[in-house]
């Protein structure tokens, strides 16, 4: 398999997980850069060009609330889970755990 094809498959695999990661990280208020740091620190590498538009899309879908605040002398848009986002995160977390258990069984990677 070509490197490019493998890269695309990895991107597809990560796409859904990133939504879950962003929703999970937005339990506390986060602005763009702090959110990226938060996710990177947890071990998921995500670039600016992917994350910042993704946050906006989730906000447009009503999963995140946002407001502009002035901190450290600079305007920043803070995002936090909305009620709908919170419900969605609960459901997605359950789905993720179920999927994860199934995949561990299929892939035979359980210790």
């Amino acid at each position: 398999m070509t490197e490019e094809r493998q890269h695309k498959l990895r991107l597809e695999l990560r796409r859904g997980v990133l939504v879950l990661a962003v929703l999970g990280a937005c339990k506390t208020p986060q602005y763009g850069y702090s959110l990226r740091q938060h996710i990177n620190d947890a071990g998921i590498d995500i670039d600016e060009g992917t994350l910042y538009p993704l946050i906006r899309r989730l906000a447009d879908q009503g999963l995140l609330d946002s407001e502009w605040q002035k901190t450290e002398g600079r305007d920043r848009r803070y995002y936090q889970l909305s009620q709908m986002g919170s419900d969605t995160l609960t459901q997605l977390t359950t789905d993720w755990q179920h999927l994860n258990r199934c995949l561990v069984q299929i892939l035979g990677t359980e210790e």
């Binding site: 763009g32 702090s34 910042y52 600079r74 305007d75």
Partner: peptide, 16 residues
């Protein structure tokens, strides 16, 4: 709106 947000995010990135 997007310009304002992009500018703010990029300034944070550059600062880091």
């Amino acid at each position: 709106d997007i310009m304002r947000e992009l500018r703010a995010n990029l300034l944070d990135e550059l600062e880091s």
